[in-house]
Simulated assay, not measured.
Amino acid sequence: MNIQKKPIVLIGFMGVGKSSVGKILATKLKRKWIDMDQTIEQKFDMNVETIFHTYGEKTFRETERKFISQFLRQSSTVISTGGGSFLQMDVQKKCMEKGFVIFLDITWDSWKKRLPLLKNRPLLQGKSEQDIKELFFSRKSIYSSHHLKIDTDGLNINEIADAIFQKLKEKNKDCPK
């Protein structure tokens, strides 16, 4: 697959580093970086937590779907999706057809260490660790559709971006020399 004419789409569970890695990767690839959560926050002029509380997850997901469809028409981009974007089958299908999807994978034990930093996430509000663990594993299956998987355990955001860059370079795909 020649990805020079396709946007790169980062997927994975919340807190895995899609936004941070996406920003670095876009710079390395000389592409525009688009963060879906930031884009939606700008549209509503409020943070994701407030959007969920005020308008509900359904409105958030509909807005997310519209923006993803719009940004998939732009080839020289890196799109950092929200952790639940791929819950929408039409989003998943469009991303797989029109983009190059990279799954940032993480184990439960590694992710759990990040939990104290993620307590403000709307889907974690009022949930026990067991509830969160169930959510984590239930989401794993939605990320099974991808073109490339990167295991992120033990890597910092720069190392993850470097790993993606190297994999793309090995496959001779859209990497500056």
Rank of each mutant, 00 (worst) to 15 (best):
A163E: 12
S144V: 00
K127A: 08
K149I: 14
M96C: 12
T54D: 12
I142A: 00
H147L: 02
K30Q: 15
Q166D: 08
V48Y: 00
Y143E: 03
R121Y: 04
N156E: 09
S20A: 15
K127C: 09
V78P: 04
P122H: 02
S76M: 06
G56N: 04
F71V: 00
L25C: 01
S85K: 02
R121V: 01
K169T: 01
D35Y: 04
N158H: 13
V16S: 13
K119N: 11
L155S: 03
K169Q: 14
K149S: 14
L124I: 02
E97W: 00
S144M: 09
G126S: 11
Y55C: 07
Q38N: 12
G15N: 12
K119V: 10
G15P: 15
W111F: 12
I51D: 07
D37C: 02
S128P: 09
V48D: 01
D37G: 05
K113W: 07
I160T: 12
R65L: 03
T59H: 03
G82V: 04
E62D: 12
E62Q: 13
K58C: 02
K93V: 08
G126R: 08
N156C: 06
I157R: 04
Q166F: 07
K94W: 08
S145D: 07
E134R: 11
K127I: 06
S128N: 11
F86G: 04
Q125R: 13
N120I: 01
G15K: 11
K177A: 13
I102T: 01
M46Y: 00
Q70E: 14
L72M: 04
L87A: 13
T107G: 14
I40W: 06
K23H: 11
R114D: 07
S144D: 10
I164N: 02
N120S: 14
T39Q: 04
T63H: 01
T107I: 11
P122D: 07
R61Y: 00
L104Q: 04
F137V: 04
A163L: 08
S85D: 09
S75T: 05
T81C: 13
I11T: 15
L155G: 07
K18A: 06
S138I: 00
F100A: 03
Q38E: 15
M1P: 13
D45N: 14
D105L: 06
S110D: 15
Q92W: 09
R65M: 06
Q130N: 14
E159W: 02
P176Q: 06
N156H: 09
G154L: 05
L104D: 05
P116W: 03
I106A: 09
W33M: 13
Q74S: 08
S85N: 06
F13K: 11
T39C: 05
R121S: 05
F165C: 01
Q4H: 14
S145P: 08
D109C: 06
A26M: 02
S145N: 10
S80E: 01
I3K: 09
K173C: 09
K43L: 11
K119P: 06
I106K: 02
D151I: 10
K6G: 10
G84Y: 10
M1T: 14
I11G: 10
S110N: 15
I8N: 11
I8A: 08
K113E: 15
L135Q: 05
I79C: 05
G84V: 03
I150Q: 06
E159V: 00
G83T: 06
I3E: 12
L117P: 01
K93D: 15
K43D: 09
